[in-house]
Design a protein around this nucleic acid. Structure first.
Length: 114
RNA sequence: AGAUUAGUCCAGGCAAUCGCGUGAAGUUAUCUUUACGAGGAAAGUCCGGGCACCUCAGGAUAAUGACGCUGGGUAACUCCCAGGUACUGUAUUUAUAAUAAAUAUAGUAACGGAAAGUGGCGCAGAAAAUAUACCGCCAGGGCAACCUGGUAAGGGUGAAAAGGUGCGGUAAGAGCGCACCGCACUACCAGUGAUGGUAGUGGCAGGCAAAACCCCGUCAGGUGCAAGACCAAAUAGGUGAUCAUGUGUAAUCCUGCACAUCUAUGAUCACGGGUAGGUUGCUUGAGCCAGCUAGUAAUAUCUGGCCUAGAUGAAUGAUUGCUACGGAAUUUUAAAAUUCUUAUACAAAACCCGGCUUAUUCGACUAAUCUUCCC
RNA sequence: GCACCCAUAGCUCAGUUGGAUAGAGUGUCAGUUUCCGAAGCUGAAGGUCACAAGUUCGAUUCUUGUUGGGUGCG
């Protein structure tokens, strides 16, 4: 059975948890996304996102990007080993670019697969 | 019917799959069921409040800041409604050489005071506010150049030059006199008032700017939910108690013992402050909807009904189907039918309200003006 | 979320009781100097004073509204 949940245990919540991922210094780059990652000892992966105001000025556009990325994480994370991940969008994207984002996300997260 | 301008309204609906937040119930320690889940601007943070804490016994004044026609509304306002005045646009009418006046209508106004005071108005110009006299005009003197006096009509400068037009008057001129217009003052009438009307008096007070300082009047204490309240780990330090060790002091001086007090270190226990973190503040409120009554209106009273987001690395997404309104094309006298297309713009609550400002797709409605067609 | 600040030449900054031509340094370009270059000297170009309205005879300056950039408060 696939588990597509995205509960509170699947998120990074504290500032310490974010900075520990950044300090681990493992990064994968794409044109739209930049993924920091670090293995953890839990039973599932955890996601955090950083979308800066430089990407786009309007809050609803930034929230849309976060939702799209969260959706991709939710659908894929069950097949992964346990990692703490921080995703930083580098470039503004809209609904027409969805397939591009999907491809890039799959390419960058190949190494997490079991 | 179309166009333009101004204002108001709307911001689709139903369903499926995988997911998210909060509440409730049940199972229980992570699942199930169910209900609800973003705007007209949630935005900008530009004003006004509620609420909370701080200062003060309580208040007032000063300083500083904001506001400024009148009346009303409101919890309050720099907001809203109604009215006045001024200005601008349009139309009509009247008179005319230009143009002016009246009426209607639409819009705009930081619309108290410049005879309370201080300062400013570059260049040009004689002179920029105490008035003054370059050219000119007139009178007198002088052979003449020019000098003395009168004058402010005309010329010239400037954004702006000390009422305007006409007639009289005069040496030439001048509100010097008169008529009309403007202005100021007084009286009466109308109005709650801003103000308006009528009559009389005055020959004219006197430039612009207060979005220069300022004066007058009114209002405002400060800080913002990261306010504030509660719980409270680790580390460090504080206070108290007990125990242990050590040192010093006093009782005339020295030594020893005992006791007291002080101080230091360590251990244990307790206490309070307080950081991380958590809980609360947090959503029933100047609330929304409908109706009656009062009022020109803003709005208010009363009656009935309703409960409608509370996240915190921050909840509404992804994929898809049907369809309303709309747009385009074709058929058609029209109604209507078929096909295609769009199904979206601006934009995301962060303590809560009232406004203002700005952004905004497709449309709908109302009012005014203009154009065309028909009766 | 709340409270604030700034915008002038390619760059760094002056310039405010409102006055017409907006300056300085540096950089750029041209000339001069030198055998050549650097430094020096002389000259020139380069500005929507962020944008839009208003007040005023006149606005970089005063007022209001936008846009962009930045700071502080846990």
């Amino acid at each position: 059975m696939q588990n597509y949940k995205f509960a509170r245990t699947h998120r990074l919540l504290k500032a310490d948890e974010f900075s520990s991922v950044f300090l681990f210094r493992k990064v994968r780059h794409g044109t739209y996304l930049k993924i920091y990652f670090k293995p953890n000892e839990l039973n599932n992966s955890r996601l955090g996102q950083v979308v800066s105001k430089k990407v786009h000025k309007r809050a609803n556009k930034r929230n849309y990007m976060k939702r799209v990325i969260r959706e991709l994480f939710r659908l894929n994370q069950a097949n992964w080993k346990s990692y703490d991940i921080v995703i930083r969008p580098q470039k503004y994207f809209v609904q027409e670019d969805f397939s591009l984002i999907q491809d890039e996300f799959a390419r960058l997260t190949k190494i997490f697969l079991k």
